[in-house]
């Protein structure tokens, strides 16, 4: 009975709300209510997976791989906001991973800044760098933007390699453990939960953005900058905004990677890493939140699974990626969603 009471109250409220809205009997508005409730629905399967997976894991190794999937899912999601939604390419996003990673490495060791604070400062530093670099770079379009961001990523990797006093140079440096409330974060299972929850938080924020005035403006810019401008959208400002947000996502993933591994080298911000992030976005599905995770899963899990092919590992991986792109042109999640009559992903 006491269990039912809140339900009853909810129904009553619902009825009152419906009655209040009854004045405008627009079908459109009713449909919108449905959509509003659906804003976060694409996360339901992901939440289910997060909860079920540990039941299937038989060793720490599985936790570690899954943690890495969520970690790269965060980075890919950030890049997807830029590429898939706003339509702006970046081939240098690993640079932001590097900033996040070195922040949690250098902050505590060189300046005595607590790891958690270093983590936040790293995200803020990435935002600042994205803001400063984005202004001139985002005026460029398509291939020119691609090459400019590529240059930015390479530049950062060189800085991390050359500033050996701070970064340990090409050999890298150790990263102090993250301690939360006197509790050192250790062990693959702990990181699994941290990263899964972080990904979900990131996904909720991304979905919020996509369904907001700013998000609509960004998606409009993707399709027609001219029409967007004529409707009063400040295209340069919106692009810069999403570049900064995207950088923060990627930077946070970089910080997590450094903390998870306990060691970093400049490779974290290398060109190959940037390409890998782009591949995750395109493979999983441009403009798909769930696709970012699926793309990350493919590129994290496949190389592990393919080790049995020995020296042909990379050949097989390359073939699979090519095959996916040929047969699922829109990326895995949007293509499958379309094939099974689903709506948005």
């Amino acid at each position: 009975m006491s269990m039912l009471a809140p339900l009853e109250r909810f129904r009553l409220l619902q009825r009152r709300r419906l009655a209040a809205a009854g004045a405008s009997k627009s079908i459109l508005l009713d449909r919108f209510r449905l959509l509003r409730r659906r804003r976060l629905i694409s996360l339901v399967p992901i939440v289910a997976i997060v909860i079920i997976l540990p039941l299937l894991f038989s060793s720490a190794y599985y936790y570690r791989v899954a943690a890495l999937v969520f970690l790269f899912g965060i980075a890919a999601l950030g890049l997807n906001l830029l590429m898939g939604f706003a339509g702006q390419v970046s081939l240098g996003h690993a640079g932001f991973m590097g900033i996040g990673a070195y922040a949690v490495a250098i902050g505590p060791t060189a300046f005595g800044i607590p790891p958690v604070l270093s983590f936040i400062l790293g995200a803020l530093l990435s935002a600042l760098v994205a803001f400063v670099v984005g202004r001139p770079i985002l005026r460029l379009k398509e291939h020119y933007l691609a090459v400019a961001t590529l240059g930015f990523g390479i530049l950062l990797a060189i800085v991390f390699t050359n500033e050996a006093n701070w970064t340990g140079g090409p050999d890298g440096m150790a990263v102090p453990q993250l301690i939360l409330f006197n509790w050192p974060l250790r062990g693959a299972a702990v990181w699994y939960w941290i990263l899964a929850v972080s990904f979900l938080v990131g996904a909720v924020i991304a979905l919020n953005l996509i369904n907001s005035p700013t998000g609509r403006a960004l998606r409009a810019i993707h399709d027609s900058e001219v029409a967007a401008r004529v409707l009063g959208i400040d295209v340069a400002q919106k692009k810069l905004m999403i570049f900064v947000i995207s950088a923060v996502y990627t930077s946070i993933a970089g910080s997590y990677l450094a903390l998870l591994d306990g060691y970093i080298t400049p490779q974290i911000s290398g060109f190959l890493r940037s390409i890998e992030l782009v591949a995750m976005v395109v493979l999983g599905g441009m403009g798909s939140v769930a696709g970012s995770l699926v793309g990350a899963a493919v590129l994290v899990i496949l190389p592990q699974a393919l080790t049995l092919f020995d020296e042909y590992e990379h050949v097989v991986l390359g073939l699979i990626v090519m095959g996916v792109m040929i047969f699922l042109r829109a990326g895995i999640v949007p293509s499958l969603a379309a094939a099974f009559g689903g709506g948005r992903s």
């Binding site: 459109l28 907001s212 005035p213 700013t214 609509r216 403006a217 998606r219 409009a220 993707h222 399709d223 027609s224 001219v226 029409a227 967007a228 004529v230 409707l231 009063g232 959208i233 905004m241 403009g287």
Partner: peptide, 24 residues
């Protein structure tokens, strides 16, 4: 110059941009 990735109503919603006033 249609926003082809958007739904019909979302296209028109973008037209409301100058009247929308929420922060990022």
């Amino acid at each position: 110059q249609i926003f082809s990735h958007l739904t019909v109503i979302e296209n028109v919603m973008v037209g409301r941009h100058r009247h929308e006033a929420t922060g990022i």
